[in-house]
Simulated assay, not measured.
Amino acid sequence: MAEIRRYPFVWHVRSGTTDHLVHVSRGRTVHAGTGQAFWFRPLTSALSEVPIDDRELGLLFHARTSDFQDVTVQATVAYRMADPDLAARRLDFGLEPRTGRWRGRPLEQIAQMLTEASQQHALALLAGLPLTGALATGMTGVRERIAAGLSGDERLLQTGVEVVDVRVIDVRPEADVERALQTPAREQVQQEADRATYERRALAVERERAISENELQSQIELATREEQLVTQRGANERRRATEAAAAGQIETQAKAEQTRVLAEARADTTRMVGAAEAETEAARMAVYATIDRDVLLALAAREAAAHLPQIGSLTLTPDVITSALSALARTDRDA
C-alpha cells in the first residue's frame, strides 16, 4: 500500500514498484504511474492505487454432470491489471488519505467476477458430460473452457483485468460415488494381484516338482550305480575266489607233485639203501659162513657188548679164557 505522510498544508505520498498510483486534482490527472512519489493537497486531490503484480485466485465450486452426479472442481486463476488507469476508473481503488488504505474492496469485486465467470463456463461444460467423461477429460476440458471464456469476457476487458493462467487441480465426485467408481478398478487390480499370486504359487509348485523329480532321478541314478557297484563287486569277488581257487589248486598240485617227487626220491633212496644194506648183509653172511663158530661167538659177544649197558666189573672163568685163547690161536694159525 502507499505510504502517506502528513505535513502542515501539504502531504506526501509514495507508492511501491508493483503499485500504479493515480493522482487526480480538480478533475485532472496530475500523476499516474508506478513508484510515484509526490506532494499533494488532501482537500483538492483524489488518490487511487491499483496493484499491477500477478495475483492468484483459488476457486472451489460444485457442478452437476449430465447424469445428475455432483462433482467438485478445484482450480486456480492467475490475473493482473493490464490497464490500471481503466481499472481505477471502473472500480473503486481510491485511498483513504489518513490511512493509505482502500476505501472499498476492489480486489474482492474482481475475485467475485472471476469466480462467477469461471463457474459459468465450467458448469456449462460439465452439464453436457457424464460422470465418467467428466472425470476422464474434465480437468483439461474445464481448464480450456475457463481460459477461453475469461479471455473473451467483455466485463473483464472493460475493467482492465487480464487472465494470465488457468489451472484446474482436481475434478472429484462425492466420496461414496468415488469409492463406487474405484471398486471395479480395485477389483481388477486385486484380481491381477491374485492371478500373479496364483501364478507365483504355481511356478513355485512347478519348481518344487522339478526339484523333486531331479532328486528322485538322482536317487534312481544313485541306486542304479549302487546296483552296478554291487554287481561289479560280486563279479570281482567271484573272480577273486576263482583266481584264488585256481591258485590254490595249482599250489596243491605243485605240493602234491613235490611230495610225490620227494616220496619217489625217498623210495629210491630207501631201495638203494636197502639194496646196499642187503648186499652188505649178504657179504657179511658170506663172510660169516666161512668163519669158525668160536669166532662168530666172539664177534657176537663184541656186538652184544657194544649194545650192553656200562659194566662196572667182569668175572672171567678159566673155561672162557681157555676157549677164547684157543680160538685166537686157531685164527692165527689159519691166517
Rank of each mutant, 00 (worst) to 15 (best):
L316R: 01
R271S: 15
E243N: 07
T231D: 02
A244C: 04
V287T: 07
A278P: 00
V287M: 02
T322M: 03
T259K: 13
R260L: 15
Q253L: 15
S326Y: 06
G234M: 10
V261G: 04
I311D: 01
T231G: 00
V320L: 10
A245Q: 10
S313I: 02
M272T: 15
K255F: 06
T322A: 09
E264R: 14
R271V: 12
V295E: 03
T315E: 06
M272L: 15
T270K: 14
D332M: 09
A256C: 00
T224K: 07
G312S: 06
E215K: 07
R240S: 12
A278Y: 06
A300M: 04
L328E: 02
A282D: 10
A256V: 12
E281K: 12
E277S: 11
A278L: 05
T242H: 08
E251H: 10
A282F: 10
R239C: 03
V287F: 07
G312F: 00
L297D: 02
L297G: 01
A329C: 07
A223G: 04
Q217C: 05
T290Y: 04
L325F: 08
G234S: 07
R293G: 00
L222G: 13
E226H: 04
G248P: 00
M272W: 11
Q217K: 07
A263D: 11
D294Y: 06
V273C: 06
V320Y: 05
T317I: 01
V273L: 15
T315Y: 03
V320M: 03
R260W: 11
T252Q: 11
E237R: 11
T331C: 04
S323H: 05
Q217N: 14
L229Y: 08
G248D: 10
E281T: 10
R225H: 08
S326V: 09
S326D: 07
I321G: 00
L262C: 01
A245V: 12
Q228Y: 09
L316T: 09
E279Y: 13
L297R: 03
R260K: 14
Q217G: 13
G274F: 05
T224H: 08
L325H: 05
A247I: 11
E251V: 10
E215D: 11
E303N: 03
R239Y: 12
L308G: 00
E279H: 06
T317Y: 00
L216C: 04
T317P: 00
A306H: 00
T269H: 13
T331N: 00
I220P: 03
E243T: 11
R225M: 08
S212K: 13
V287G: 00
T231S: 01
